[in-house]
Design a protein around this nucleic acid. Sequence first.
DNA 1: TTTATTTGCGGGAACGTTCCCGCAAATATC
DNA 2: GATATTTGCGGGAACGTTCCCGCAAATAAA
Lengths: 328, 328
Amino acid sequence: MVRTRATIMDIARELGLSKTTVSSALSGSGRISDEKRELIQEAADRLGYVTNRAARSLRVNRIGAIGLHIPPVARSLAFYMDFAFGVTEGAAAADYDVTLFARGLTPRMAFQVDGVIAIDPAPGEPLVAALLANGIPTVSVGRYNGPGEERVQGTLEAHHAELQTQVLDHLLARGRRRPALLAIDDAIGSSWAVDTRRNYMEWCLRNSLEPRVHEVAANASPRDLIAAITQAVDIGGADALVCGAQGQAAQSQIVLESRGFALGKDLDVVSFAGAAALETGNPLISSIDLAPRAYGKAATELLDAIIQEPDAPPVHRWFEGASVHLAS
Amino acid sequence: MVRTRATIMDIARELGLSKTTVSSALSGSGRISDEKRELIQEAADRLGYVTNRAARSLRVNRIGAIGLHIPPVARSLAFYMDFAFGVTEGAAAADYDVTLFARGLTPRMAFQVDGVIAIDPAPGEPLVAALLANGIPTVSVGRYNGPGEERVQGTLEAHHAELQTQVLDHLLARGRRRPALLAIDDAIGSSWAVDTRRNYMEWCLRNSLEPRVHEVAANASPRDLIAAITQAVDIGGADALVCGAQGQAAQSQIVLESRGFALGKDLDVVSFAGAAALETGNPLISSIDLAPRAYGKAATELLDAIIQEPDAPPVHRWFEGASVHLAS
DNA sequence: TTTATTTGCGGGAACGTTCCCGCAAATATC
DNA sequence: GATATTTGCGGGAACGTTCCCGCAAATAAA
């Protein structure tokens, strides 16, 4: 049984019309009377017609797919997963497929998409550089710094500094004077990691507080995390924990509560990248909800705009969907 | 600047040959002298030729893409992320793209792929049912139980029962007699969740041990996890924690160590789904390494075989890449 | 009525591949 | 030397769309 799909010609034959008429009726172009349009649409549904993307691609010289690149180091984070599904959602709306880019993309792959979204690219990320060199429309979520002059066509960024400052100010308002930052170690080097650290430092400076930075890997083992917390709280005397990596605020909560600390009383824990169930909605943890799904969708919309208008100058856009949840 | 790619005709003109010759030289089919073959290959490289997939798809009636479906409830788990990249890797080797399927796939999408991989499908999962109804080659990772008679063309499964029994036996050998299972609540209903629970029960029965099952959501909040641990250890008197959900063993370690328990002495913690850095390689936690990357790759290979041979009877295949790491 | 203009539809080409076939030259077989 | 067979390559069609054009009929403008 070889499955053979209905084509535009099948519909045309069925109704005694020409393929041109059917095509323009279905695509909404051309001049077709309303009655024929309905007739054709109905026949298409009845025959289970679905347009052959290969044929269309070939004709209109457009692939109909966008690539998604996720940095290897951080693949374990739930944030990227949700982001990816946001991208998929937005892509479906604009009639793109989403193709996953594994590490080590071969140059051929770059030509099998109309554009790509790179989330949190490392500085000089070779993939992005290769895309730019080939003129493939690229959207960077978070800023991309290349080795040379080349710039990515689109950049989408959230108001990390403002949001983080809100959370930090809230700590200050609650009387915390010794908040420590559990910073993702700089191995990633994404603009987010860099901004977070700098923003914390400047905030400390503005408020005449001593900065307390403790490095933790994004996928730190329990041992490492406990060590960092011990260092920060027991030895450093921190009265609040500011967690950079997703999920670490929730884990810190476990550590601290198990040790008999009362969150919100003895100590505060906040998250700069709240995970869905763990931190966002957790009444004891103030957090930033990066809204990864909406973020991904927004990235797709930006990319689509760039694909439509390839020769426009590089554009920087802000994502407004992130929000803070303050513990009361 | 409209980018226009080199075609097979460009190469043909350049060398004064016909498109047929070039095509068969590049695809390895047909009868071509070695010298011409080399000449053509060299010209292709020089011109940066990359085959137009749309044209090929149209001609050979094959899409060149496989779909990947990930259950919505568990998207936050790192396992699926790694699995996805394993799929991508395998797909690249067989010259497929990987298309992400978001929830709520429209019927059209099913026709834009040559086949799909569904990881841990819920019983009766509507997407899988729709695929089967349309005759799309489908590989289920973990068993799929549909509402009717229809069967998925391929099933890939790991030896969960054997591996889990190894880990449990190891607990027994260490003198544990009251191991409690932190089971993912049955909302997911995947064959893995079902098997895990049944296997634990049978093992208890075989060893004349009282089963202790505590339900925990896969993305349980710290509060929920702590409650479950308290229930199991403090109230239930468990001397070992068997964690189903990825990452929960590591979190349990934090809870227990923070309370002063010595892992490996007072209590044991094991994981049935070890996360990369957290549990696998953790000297205190025995765990099963599901090798998600290799698992994904194996799934792709199975799907590819099915696509090649669509009329073969349903096949069940075991994945041999999973392994156990026993704490010493 | 005559002459523009619009409306509704169809014919045909093109997109870049692959595949079937044909055909001459080279080589093997008798 | 005559007849088969193999080798190396090319011509042409086809895959399913979309788009440019053309053309008749209907309508509007003169």
